[in-house]
Amino acid sequence: MNTKVLASLLLLPIIVLAGSMLRLSYMSNFEKVEVAVQGYDPKDFFSGYYMYLRPDWEKTDCTQFADNVCPKDDFNTTYTFYIKREQSEKLTQKVNAGVVKLQFSYSPGFEPIITDLFVDGKSFMEYVNTQK
């Protein structure tokens, strides 16, 4: 086999992966909305631990959406937020206390992309730093 053919076959998956990254990065820059959530914490085989979160539309502020209506159908019934294993216990308590919200990058017609998780009004990294 020609080395050029080999190189192009190897580049194919890299290009597709880079394309996925760019697409998701583009989708993460839409207008931000916050959705209240409920959930629990399982473990994923190759992406690590995550909080399994379900949008709680009754507690969500629908005025942030067009016509003051929550577009429930545009969102999935469950979402995952990846965390470290040692963070799961305290975060589960916060989720149960109803003080956790997911921030999405949202634009009608596109799949909403999670951009952050707010605990007691603090962004996830701020919350993590206060826990240290």
Partner: peptide, 13 residues
């Protein structure tokens, strides 16, 4: 796996 983690995509093995 990393893309799924960074963009918090739904865990679907």
């Amino acid at each position: 796996g990393l893309i799924g983690q960074v963009y918090h995509l739904r865990s679907d093995f």
